[in-house]
């Protein structure tokens, strides 16, 4: 019999479905629309998000009770559900845990695995970025593929408040853990919503120091925007890593993106070139960031940014 079920694993934090999992649900709905399958949302641990899963378009919810996150346990649960449902696809959000679970479940069930899907093509293939974002490939992973969905690409599904769907309880037998998570420590308390931001002001190595980086924050605040960063600024510790835009961070598409002291490595540009309007400030007139900028200012960020901040304050008052 033909496989009928698209499974989508919804990762939750404090009983809320995390954003990238909602994007995976949206991808599942797109796939369902193309193939005529049903979408079954999987909740592990708390079932509190079952209502949200229904509102965002799952046709059914499967819940498995479990203790706090253990990769081995979650791999085992998803593998069992995949096999029981004879899934035609399993979709997950592309966080660190999502990617590990996907790779492991795919290996266990013998399915193809696609990492960081950005779009579902007309022919049913998945589009993803390769070579640091300089090229895009479309891949066919066959029926039963396990796919992780890259954050900032599919967007949230449409919401129908009050929609309800059947919730099924399932159990999966526990095996002994091989790798044991002993402790989880939260270091980044502030959540950063780059994906939905209308304005992003981002800084790179050209900002020069953690102290100077404050100008990026000031300008972002003034414009009601969110602070972004390129990898060097993260590695130098000027800003926490959840602000990263690009290949190893978020894909963003704000109306306005202001790149300050960012040279424009392709790994960064591939994450922000979908922005509506790009302003770049860099002292190197040959910086590749200028190739994608609507307005490029050749100059020192430390001269330009304070003046820009003053000017915007003046215009506001």
């Amino acid at each position: 019999m033909e496989k009928q079920t698209i499974l989508v694993y919804l990762e939750t934090a404090e009983d809320q479905v995390i954003k990238v999992s909602l994007e995976a649900l949206n991808a599942a709905r797109q796939l369902a629309a193309k193939t005529g399958k049903n979408v079954t949302a999987v909740l592990i641990g708390s079932a509190a998000a079952a209502g949200a899963a229904a509102a965002y378009g799952a046709d059914e919810v499967v819940h498995v009770a479990a203790d706090s996150y253990q990769a081995d346990r979650y791999t085992e649960i998803l593998t069992a559900l995949y096999q029981r449902a004879e899934a035609s696809a399993l979709l997950l959000g592309s966080g660190r845990d999502g990617k590990e679970l996907a790779a492991r479940v795919a290996a266990r069930v013998g399915a193809g695995c696609v990492t960081d899907a950005m779009a579902l093509a007309e022919d049913g293939s998945w589009v993803r970025s390769v070579y640091g974002g300089s090229l895009q490939e479309s891949v066919d992973a066959g029926v039963g593929a396990v796919v992780t969905v890259r954050s900032g690409t599919f967007g949230k599904p449409e919401e129908t408040a009050g929609r309800t769907v059947p919730v099924t309880e399932e159990t999966v037998e526990n095996s002994e853990l091989k790798a044991v998570i002993k402790e989880a420590v939260q270091e980044l308390s502030e959540s950063v919503n780059l994906e939905d931001a209308e304005v992003i002001v981002a800084g790179g190595r050209g900002m020069g120091s953690a102290e100077n980086f404050q100008l990026v924050r000031d300008l972002a605040e003034l414009l009601g925007g969110v602070v972004g960063a390129s990898r060097p600024a993260i590695e130098d510790g000027w800003v926490p890593r959840n602000h990263q835009v690009g290949q190893s961070g978020k894909i963003v598409a704000p109306k306005l993106y202001i790149a300050c002291g960012i040279s424009g490595a392709m790994q960064h540009v591939s994450g922000m070139s979908g922005s509506g309007y790009i302003v770049a400030i860099n002292k190197d007139e040959d910086a590749p960031i200028f190739d994608v900028a609507d307005v490029g200012i050749v100059g020192n960020v430390m001269d330009i940014l304070p003046l820009m901040i003053e000017e915007i304050k003046a215009r506001k008052s």
């Binding site: 895009q136 479309s138 992973a141 994608v292």
Partner: peptide, 27 residues
């Protein structure tokens, strides 16, 4: 199990205005 069916260059943006002024204020 995973096969590449196509490879393409992502859409390219056109660059706009590049401002090079002696005075930062003018830029």
């Amino acid at each position: 199990k995973v096969r590449r069916v196509a490879l393409s260059a992502p859409p390219q943006r056109q660059s706009g205005v590049k401002i090079q002024e002696k005075e930062a204020a003018e830029a």
